[in-house]
């Protein structure tokens, strides 16, 4: 602890999630929908790795429920998917931190795919299946954009002295 109140870092982390929600909801053309990365998932993964003392599966669940409310999807659908990836990222945060860049991006891809797979599974159970190949582009875009997200959030973390 270097004199930074935990309240401030929580606020800062909350603000990054808020930006992620805005990016997720921002209206765009129909064709661009499939290329929209899972912003909220990316931010969650980052904080689970970089600030595991502050962000973990509880945060993951909360973040997912809010996404469910915003999207109007089945309550708990995104929450479940987010909890699982938060758990994995949280468990492996020490390893993932040590990974070289490309390996880290690959791990992020795996996490995002797990997230989408879980949601596909839930949708399959309730009979809302639209399995098209473009469905998975979002995860690939997420992987490609990960280095950028990482650099920006690392900057936020350093400036805010978030441990």
């Amino acid at each position: 602890m270097n004199g930074i109140s935990p309240m401030r870092s929580i606020m800062l982390i909350g603000a990054t999630f808020l930006v992620a929600y805005l990016l997720a909801l921002l209206p765009g053309p129909e064709w661009a929908d499939q290329f929209r990365p899972n912003w909220v998932g990316l931010v969650l993964i980052y904080w689970c790795i970089a600030a595991p003392r502050r962000v973990g599966i509880g945060t993951g669940w909360l973040v997912g429920i809010i996404l469910d409310l915003l999207y109007g999807s089945l309550l708990g659908q995104h929450a479940l998917a987010m909890v699982i990836i938060a758990f994995i990222a949280h468990k492996l945060h020490l390893q993932i931190r040590m990974f070289p860049g490309w390996q880290q991006a690959a791990t992020v891809l795996v996490l995002l795919v797990i997230n989408q797979l879980l949601m596909l599974w839930v949708k399959g159970v309730i009979g809302e299946t639209a399995t098209l190949w473009p469905y998975w582009t979002s995860s690939i875009v997420g992987m490609v954009i990960w280095p950028l997200v990482f650099v920006i959030l690392r900057d936020v973390r350093r400036r805010g002295h978030i441990e």
């Binding site: 909801l25 921002l26 209206p27 765009g28 929908d33 499939q34 929209r36 915003l70 999207y71 109007g72 999807s73 809302e128 639209a130 098209l132 469905y135 979002s138």
Partner: peptide
């Protein structure tokens, strides 16, 4: 004008 979950139409 907000976009919702991709691959659902709402």
């Amino acid at each position: 004008e907000v976009s919702l979950e991709p691959f659902t139409r709402k």
